[in-house]
Each structure stands twice: as structure tokens, then as C-alpha cells.
Amino acid sequence: MLLLKTMQKVNPMKAIFFEKFGTRDVLQFGDRPEPAPQQKELLIEVERSSVNYVDIRERQGTYNRPETHVGGIELPHISGLQAVGTVIAAGSKEDKVWIGKKVVAYTPKGGGYAQKVVAETSFCVEIPESANADLFAALPNQGLTAYLLLTASTQIQPGESVLVQGASGGVGSLAVQIAKILGAGTVLGTASTSEKLDFIRSLGADDAIDYTREDWTKRVLENTSGRGVDVLLESIGGNIFEQNFECLAPFGRHIIFGSTRGPGQPFAPRRLMQKSQTMTGFYLPVFLAKPELIQAGMEFLVKATLEEKLRPSIARILPLSQTAEAHRLLEDREIQGTILLDTK
């Protein structure tokens, strides 16, 4: 007796994907199979997604090099670490109550550059139907990074001073605001142009400093009565990494979460002993091993945004088909805040 297998129909969706690593030219816009939610996952019809610098590193193949030690990705790949949209299906019976709800989702496996994406239920937070999708689409990856830098890599104490390098970017602009929400005292931000410095001040920073000036560390010391900052969030690298120690206070915490200018020169760890300072590395995917911290971060970000204490900054909204242009703007550092993708 012949057994006939019924092929399940796979619905196509529009997406941005790449089949090989390289420059922006490898990004393709076309049809991909609609993902299917598994246990404890939701299928979301995406309204807004956004672009992160991580997406560029993925496209370049950085995470697939042995020296990065982060596991890599499989090709073809759809990037996109965050999305806002409506739940249209659930992989678990108990999660069907989510269907029809508007959610903001963190999607660490990617998939956000598409009309539909799958996300773990625990990494989704419901938002009001009337909520501005643009604000929330800018939150998950960059917001979680900023939040966990200040609550897990260290714990800000009331009145402590904070310096955020690259404070006009997606993570930096949120870190400035979150530091204030968490009770920090003096919060300083750096950038490289007058326009970006004005933007940082508009976020509530106590001062904005041009890190391209040779004496930028003196400005930090002036703002902290010569003591230096208690917490320093570093994402630039190069020679800036070395200069950071000129304005880091005794017992100061130096947290590294990026290096847009490259890793710089080797560092002698015993230097930290002189002022009892600490240095901590940060990589958000590592925190997937602690999902309770991810959940707490998502809930904090949504609550603070709904209460208008946190204002995600939207730099540009582009159609999904123009994702390559979004990558260019980010690579060329032409934007302040987050670039969103309209997936409709």
C-alpha cells in the first residue's frame, strides 16, 4: 500500500537576506519561506523592524571567523534582532492567548528583516494597540544592551557618574537616559560632531564632549571635580580605549561593548591594580543563558517608554527594500539614533 505524504504549503514573504558574506551588495530583497513557530514561540506579522551594527558584522562574516569565538550563523540568513508587530500564530497551545496582540520582540536568532518573524514567547512584551510602533522597534537589542550594561555588568549606585562613549548612537543614546532613570548623578556623553553633541545634550546628558579633541579627558575631569567617572561605557576602541583611563575614577568600572575604531594596543591588566579599577567585557548573546535578565530588561524598557521616561531616537524610516542604504548610513556614521525598516 502506497502512503502519500501531503506537502505542507509554505507561504512566501518578502525579506532581506544574504547567501554569502561581503559588502552591502550581497543583500538581496525577495521571497523567503514563512517561518513556523515551534514550542514556546510566536509568529509575528512585522510592522517595524530596525537595523543594528551587529547586522553589519553578520553580513561581513565577522562572527563566522574562528577568532571571534561566537559560533557564527548559517547561510542563507535573514538579519534583524528586533521587531514590532501582531502575533498571528503560536507554537504552543498555552500561547494561543497571544494571537491578535501587538508585541515588541527581541529576536536574537535574527529574522527581523522580513514581513514575518518568529520570536520566543519569553522575549515578547505586549504593548497597547495604540502604541507608536516606531518607538518600540528601536528598543530590544540596543535597549537591552544599554540596560544590562548598567544593571548586570555593573550596578549603578545613586549619584554615581557615568561616561557613555559614542552617546549619539542607538545604544549610547538609550544608555544616557537609562543611567538617569536608574539614579546616576553626572552623566556625560561623547561624539565627534557638533550636531551629535547637541543631540546628546537633548537626551538629558549633563555635558557632551568631542572625543576627537586631544584634551577631551580634561573635560571629563572638570565635570567630575577632578575625580573621574565611576562607570565608563566604551564602544570606540583604538586610541580612545587608552585615553579612557585618564578619566576613570578610583574603583571605576570600565565596560567594553564595542570597538568601532578597532581593538587598539594590547592592555596590561595589572594597571587596574593602581586604582582598584575593573574592566568588564559585554556581549549581549551571552545573556541568553540568563533569560530572566532578558525578560526583566524588556519589561523595564517597555514600561519606561510607555511612561515617557525613555525616548528612543528614530534617525530614519526606510522601506525594507532599502536595507542596504540603512547599512550604508550606519557604516558611514551619518545618523543619530536608530534606523527603522517599514516591512509593509
Results as ranks from 00 to 15, higher is better:
residue 67 E to F: 11
residue 26 V to L: 10
residue 70 V to T: 15
residue 258 G to F: 07
residue 160 E to N: 07
residue 320 L to A: 07
residue 199 F to Q: 13
residue 175 A to Q: 04
residue 99 I to F: 08
residue 220 V to K: 09
residue 286 V to K: 13
residue 139 L to A: 01
residue 19 E to N: 13
residue 126 E to T: 01
residue 53 Y to R: 12
residue 28 Q to G: 03
residue 139 L to M: 11
residue 301 L to Q: 03
residue 293 L to A: 01
residue 74 E to W: 03
residue 137 A to S: 14
residue 10 V to K: 13
residue 304 A to T: 02
residue 115 Q to E: 15
residue 11 N to G: 06
residue 344 K to M: 06
residue 13 M to P: 00
residue 187 V to C: 10
residue 14 K to N: 12
residue 216 W to N: 03
residue 39 Q to M: 10
residue 322 Q to Y: 03
residue 237 G to R: 12
residue 96 K to Y: 03
residue 236 I to G: 02
residue 270 R to V: 15
residue 217 T to S: 09
residue 248 L to M: 06
residue 69 H to S: 07
residue 7 M to S: 15
residue 38 Q to Y: 03
residue 33 P to M: 12
residue 326 A to C: 04
residue 162 V to T: 08
residue 52 N to R: 02
residue 329 L to T: 07
residue 83 A to E: 04
residue 137 A to H: 02
residue 281 G to S: 11
residue 15 A to G: 09
residue 237 G to S: 14
residue 264 G to I: 12
residue 195 E to S: 12
residue 52 N to A: 13
residue 126 E to F: 00
residue 142 Q to G: 15
residue 342 D to C: 06
residue 192 S to M: 06
residue 182 L to D: 07
residue 80 G to M: 12
residue 279 M to L: 13
residue 27 L to K: 14
residue 167 A to Y: 11
residue 84 V to N: 04
residue 227 R to M: 05
residue 159 G to P: 04
residue 256 I to K: 08
residue 340 L to G: 07
residue 327 H to T: 08
residue 159 G to T: 11
residue 202 S to D: 11
residue 341 L to H: 10
